[in-house]
């Protein structure tokens, strides 16, 4: 860990202006990701800009969308009555994340910015294209049990390990950003994270001088009837081996709209649109769920140790849909 200075920002402008000029500076919210990365010498920031005082607060329904302020804590959002009732997958994804202590500290904005748990990335003694571009990706031939089967490249196969982003990906959420000029833009969650391609060090489209202000989730029928299932190596406090967020709008026994997003398998929160299409207009039967699940993993490229994910994620999709209909 290096020496750093610490500044508390009282306005968004103050914070973004610092980053505009000093790209090495970092915003700090809950610090649960950032401090780990700095202690392990994976990131070095000469300056930390504390954004906890910013008024990016509130969990409310506005113009047909749930608006979650970026500074809200995971636990507060997960336990919020509105979220619980109308966006159950969001609540479940949050409450199945990390530990109570971490959820009490961690913010929604920080959660979307969390970095991969790839063990090579987390240890500076290893080569890793994401941490040290051009140094190689030992995971391809190495320990890749936790890594992605979808969206990988020659350069990187690390998963996006977050849970919340999977639920948000399923429910067509939008990320609200604001830059140093005070200009805001809305980016669909699905476009917020990017594929590794040849530049795995680049994980999101956020610019250095931009802050996440809020996350917006349309209040739809499929959001109200949504569900998140996470499979992991122990009962709590572990990242997903695989996970699935699903939402259905079923009327008169027929699926009108379907949403499926996957975690633990993709290099970014993975939306399975082909699978969704297969469900629309069909009955909510196990057979149809299975067919959809099979479509969701088409094109998967498993490696030596993560082959199991191909089957496990299909079963997880089916499980999530079944539980949703139960």
């Amino acid at each position: 860990m290096n020496n750093f200075s610490y500044t508390q920002a009282s306005t968004a402008k103050e914070a973004t202006n610092i980053r505009k000029d000093a790209k090495d500076a970092a915003f700090i919210a809950g610090g649960t990701t950032l401090l780990d990365l700095m202690k392990a010498d994976i990131e070095q920031h000469p300056q930390l800009v504390d954004i906890n005082m910013l008024p990016f607060r509130g969990i409310e329904l506005n113009d047909g969308s749930l608006r979650i302020g970026a500074m809200e804590r995971m636990s507060d959002v997960g336990e919020n009555a509105l979220v619980l009732q109308q966006f159950p997958a969001v609540s479940e994804a949050l409450l199945l994340s990390a530990s109570p202590q971490l959820r009490n500290m961690a913010s929604i904005g920080g959660n979307l910015m969390q970095r991969t748990r790839c063990g090579y990335f987390r240890d500076t003694a290893f080569p890793c294209n994401k941490r040290n571009p051009g140094s190689g990706c030992p995971a391809q031939q190495g320990d890749n049990r936790n890594l992605a089967i979808l969206g990988g490249s020659q350069a990187c196969i690390a998963t996006n390990a977050g849970d919340l982003a999977v639920a948000l990906a399923a429910l067509d959420a939008v990320v609200l950003l604001e830059n140093a000029k005070g200009k805001q833009r809305r980016v669909p969650l699905l476009e917020f994270h990017v594929l590794p391609g040849t530049t795995p060090q680049r994980e999101t489209i956020i610019e250095a001088d931009e802050l996440i202000v809020a996350v917006l989730v349309p209040a739809t029928a499929q959001a109200r009837k949504s569900h998140y299932v996470k499979v992991r190596d122990r009962a709590s406090y572990a990242f997903a081996l695989v996970s699935a967020a699903v939402g259905l709008d079923v009327q008169g026994g027929q699926i009108r709209a379907a949403r499926i997003a996957l975690g633990g398998v993709g290099t970014k929160p993975w939306r399975a649109q082909e699978a969704e299409k297969l469900l629309v207009g069909k009955a909510a039967t196990e057979e149809n769920f299975r067919a959809a699940a099979a479509a969701a993993v088409r094109g998967a490229q498993p490696r030596e140790h993560n082959r199991f994910k191909v089957e496990m994620v299909q079963k997880t999709i089916v499980r999530a849909l079944q539980e949703l209909m139960a």
Binding site: A125, F126, P138, G142, D143, D233
Partner: peptide, 23 residues
């Protein structure tokens, strides 16, 4: 877990080396 080629552990932390939790 160990990388077989570099003979180095890949989960040397209590976040990823799983021991039972209360649940």
């Amino acid at each position: 877990f160990r990388d077989p080629n570099l003979a180095r552990y890949t989960n040397a932390s209590l976040g990823e080396y799983h021991i039972p939790v209360n649940a």
